[in-house]
Structure formats: C-alpha cells, structure tokens
Amino acid sequence: MRRSPPEPPLRLTRRGFIVLGGLGLGTVAAGTYAITNGLSGVPGLPQIPGLVEPTPPEVFADPVPVERAQLQARTKLGPAAYVYEVTGRPATYYVDTAFGGRLDAWLALHRQHTGQEPDTIRSYGAWVRGSSTSWHSSGQAFDVARLRADGKDLVSLRYDQWRDAPATELRRRLAAYWRVAAGLHHEFADVLTYLYDSSHSNHIHVDTGRFGAERPRLIRRSRVQAQAVQAMCLHVWGRTDVEITGEWDDATRAATTEILEQVDGPGELEESREAWQAFMVATMERA
C-alpha cells in the first residue's frame, strides 16, 4: 500500500504547526464542532460557543519522506521474526522508532487476546523511498500478509489466495482475518483491507496518519472503519442483519451496541475510544 485513504482535502504536515481541520459548519460525533488541541483561544480564530474537543483529535498530516538511514533497522516484531513475503526469507525492515513500538504493541495484544503465538510475521514491507503521498516513505506504515508459527500459517491475510475457497473454509478464514484486523484497528486508525480496493487483497496495510501517536476512535464518516466494523459484525459475530456498506447506519449502530452490552463494554461504539477498544478486544477474543 502506498497511500492512506483520502478524507478531508485540508492536509497539513505533522512536523509543522497543526491547524484547525476546517472552519466551516462541518459536524462530528454528536453534531458539535471539533478543534485540535491547543487552538481554542488562538488570536484571529473565531470563538464558537459549545465547541468540544474529540479524544484524540484527528491529525490531518501528510507523510514526511525520510531516508532509510534515519529509521530503525529491525528484523523482528516483538518476539516474531520478520519475513519478506515476496521472497519467503528473513529480512530487515526499516521504520520510525515509535511506529516500530506500536507494531510490537499490536503483536502483544494479538497474543494476549487470541491465544496465538506467532513466531513469524510475513510482510510486503515497511519503508520505501517515495513521496509525501506515502506513509511508507516516512517509515510509518507496514503491510501484514501472514502470521505463522512452526512453519505453518496461523492466519493468512492473503485474501487473494483463498477468496474462492469452499463455503465452510471461507467462513473460517474470514473470521480469522477479521479477528486479526480487529487488533490492528485497536492500534491504528488507517487499516486498509481487501474491502478498500483490490491492491489490498494480499495484505492489510496500517499507518498512523490519522491520529499520530494516539490510538484511534471511531470516525463515523470513515468508510474504512465502517466497512471493518460491519465485516466484524458479520464474519466474527454472525450478525447477518448487518450489511457491509461503508456507511455508519442504524443497523451497524444497533448491532455494535448490543455486542458491547453483551461483553459489558462502555456505552456505544461511537461515544469513546474506550468503547472502540472494548469492541476490538471482544472481537479478537470471539471464538
């Protein structure tokens, strides 16, 4: 994957000054207006009564390309060896140090909540030399293809290889796929799957473009997140009343609320980051 999904047209460099994501009449969450941290009271900006600050705020930033020498060289994610999917051989990948830590956190989360203990992560790579259209060029993106142990797949994210499998096998593989995706959505806001486009049929792409160092929450206008939650409801939770539309609709809201109630989660999915995390953990643990 070479690009995060397009969202609002206003885009700013994360390493520069992050400004308001638009001063129109757009709304978020409960219909209120959102501003980024530290901008309330900035001279020259209009002060609008009743503003609320989301937790965390979105960061509309463009990647900042860096040279490989500026990044951390790694041969593992946590305890798991890194293997390049194209060659099938152990390799070195290069990432921003903080992003590498987030990958380690994801794998620890996966091990904790699925009971799987991968000893190998197969990937299509991390850093590539490129432009400001690619989070890979900044060392803040990674493409996951398979989780393996003892030379065998625990979970294959190669949808291109098994999408035509017999119905029973396909159901099993889709459930496993979306349990992995849930862990990735717990840690990363931009998680691109086969539902995003055909170029992601052989891996899941993750990056930190939307929230930077913060962990994600639901953004109701996000097609990527809506598709993912709907796929989890359908393929993991067996909610056949939910369709994968990419729209945050009433059926999706009702299903996720019922699932969170079932697992004693906090409130509704769209209300907080904690609810988002609880839904993803419950999905990972769902047998």
Rank of each mutant, 00 (worst) to 15 (best):
M1Y: 10
R3E: 11
P5Q: 13
E7V: 11
L10P: 08
L10R: 14
L12Y: 11
R14M: 04
R15C: 11
G16K: 06
G21L: 13
G22Y: 05
L23N: 12
L25Y: 09
V28C: 12
A30W: 11
G31A: 11
T32R: 13
T32M: 08
Y33L: 07
I35V: 12
T36Q: 10
N37G: 11
S40G: 06
S40I: 10
G44W: 08
L45R: 09
I48L: 14
I48V: 15
P49S: 04
G50M: 01
E53D: 09
P56E: 00
P56G: 03
E58Q: 15
A61Y: 02
P65S: 07
R68C: 03
Q70H: 11
A73G: 09
A80S: 14
V83A: 05
Y84N: 11
E85Y: 12
V86P: 02
T87W: 08
G88M: 02
G88R: 05
R89V: 10
P90I: 04
A91G: 07
V95G: 07
D96V: 07
T97G: 12
G101R: 06
R102Y: 01
D104F: 01
R111K: 09
T114N: 06
G115A: 07
D119C: 01
R122Q: 13
R122K: 13
R122I: 00
W127E: 04
T133F: 12
S137A: 15
S138C: 06
G139R: 10
Q140L: 05
F142E: 02
V144Q: 07
R146H: 15
L147K: 03
R148S: 12
R148P: 03
A149V: 05
D150P: 05
D150W: 04
D153P: 07
L157F: 03
Q161P: 02
R163L: 01
E169A: 12
L170F: 09
A175I: 00
V180C: 07
A181F: 00
A182E: 06
H186S: 08
D190A: 15
T193P: 00
T193S: 14
L195H: 11
S198R: 15
S198P: 07
S199E: 08
H200E: 00
S201C: 06
V206N: 00
T208I: 13
R210A: 14
F211P: 10
R215C: 03
P216F: 02
V224M: 10
Q230S: 03
L234D: 04
L234G: 05
L234P: 00
H235I: 03
D241N: 13
V242A: 04
E247V: 14
A251M: 03
T252P: 06
T256I: 04
T257S: 15
T257K: 12
E258Y: 02
E258I: 05
E258M: 06
I259F: 06
E261D: 15
D264M: 06
P266T: 01
L269W: 07
L269R: 09
S272C: 01
S272P: 00
F279D: 03
V281F: 05
A282W: 05
T283W: 05
E285I: 00
E285V: 05
